[in-house]
């Protein structure tokens, strides 16, 4: 009998996917706590009680200046050391959409060892996009959170998912940390990258929303029986399940 892994989900100041992220984590077996970022910053040490930290999607600080910018500044100033330690101890950090943008702004992705080298910019169409997209896993990385997945579908819902990088030198490093690719060019992102992971694979930042596909009813075409049978497996569920299994392997 093992105890359940503990997941901390942040909210407040414009984050808005905390409930469905909590639902997804509980579905696969996590114990969860939703906490205001302002509460976490008061006692950043409390992060030590958890094994998974989720930065959910949303519009923290209204996406002003740059998406994810101000929440990243707050972490930088108020809780960076604890977060770094959390990562070094092989806990999982999952940044989804706006959460991914925060992790990039913090320099945690592609990896803490590098100078900041990428940014999630406005989509090349200059429009917010909500649609489901086909994704493929970078099989070279063997990322533990993307186990048992190769090509799959998830929804994207963002206006700033266009990964831009600093220079030629950065491109190599970025490619080494690319966890997911879009099958088609959906937003102008460099090398069609949809997600980044750190070297050790325990930090994953992704623009698509895994928490939005953990039951079959969330798929846009679940009423098509054929599709329901062979394609509409909840891929997001698999990602959270991988996170759960990570602690028992």
């Amino acid at each position: 009998m093992t105890t359940k892994p503990q997941a901390l989900i942040l909210y407040g100041d414009g984050i808005n996917c905390e409930h469905e992220t909590k639902f997804a984590l509980e579905l696969v077996g996590f114990d969860t706590k939703i906490m205001l970022t302002s509460d976490l910053f008061k006692t950043p040490k409390s992060i030590e009680k958890y094994q998974l930290l989720a930065f959910p999607g949303g519009f923290s600080f209204g996406d002003e200046i740059y998406s994810g910018k101000v929440l990243a500044l707050q972490f930088e100033q108020l809780a960076k050391d604890y977060l770094v330690k959390f990562i070094e101890q092989k806990n999982i950090v999952l940044g989804i959409c706006n959460g991914f943008q925060v992790l990039v702004n913090l320099g945690i992705l592609p990896d803490l060892n590098y100078e900041p080298m990428c940014q999630l910019n406005h989509n090349s169409q200059n429009k917010f996009i909500n649609r489901w997209v086909n994704l493929s896993v970078n099989s070279k990385l063997n990322n533990p959170l993307l186990k048992n997945l190769t090509n799959f579908e998830l929804p994207i819902r963002h206006g700033e998912g266009n990964l831009i990088i600093k220079n030629e030198k950065a491109s190599e490093i970025i490619l080494q940390h690319a966890a997911l690719f879009y099958e088609n060019d959906v937003n102008g992102s460099f090398a069609k990258i949809a997600a980044l992971t750190n070297k050790t694979g325990n930090v994953l930042g992704m623009m698509p929303h895994p928490e939005a596909f953990v039951t079959r009813f969330q798929h846009y075409n679940w009423l098509n029986q054929q599709l329901a049978n062979d394609q509409a497996k909840p891929y997001g569920y698999q990602i959270f399940l991988n996170a759960y299994n990570y602690f028992f392997c």
């Binding site: 996917c17 409930h19 469905e20 928490e211 969330q218």
Partner: peptide
């Protein structure tokens, strides 16, 4: 329609568009 987030909260099960091509 696609510039409006119609899936946040995770509960939208009949969406504005359907079918294999959405």
């Amino acid at each position: 329609v696609r510039q409006y987030d119609h899936e946040v909260q995770g509960k939208t099960i009949i969406k504005p568009f359907t079918g294999k091509n959405q």
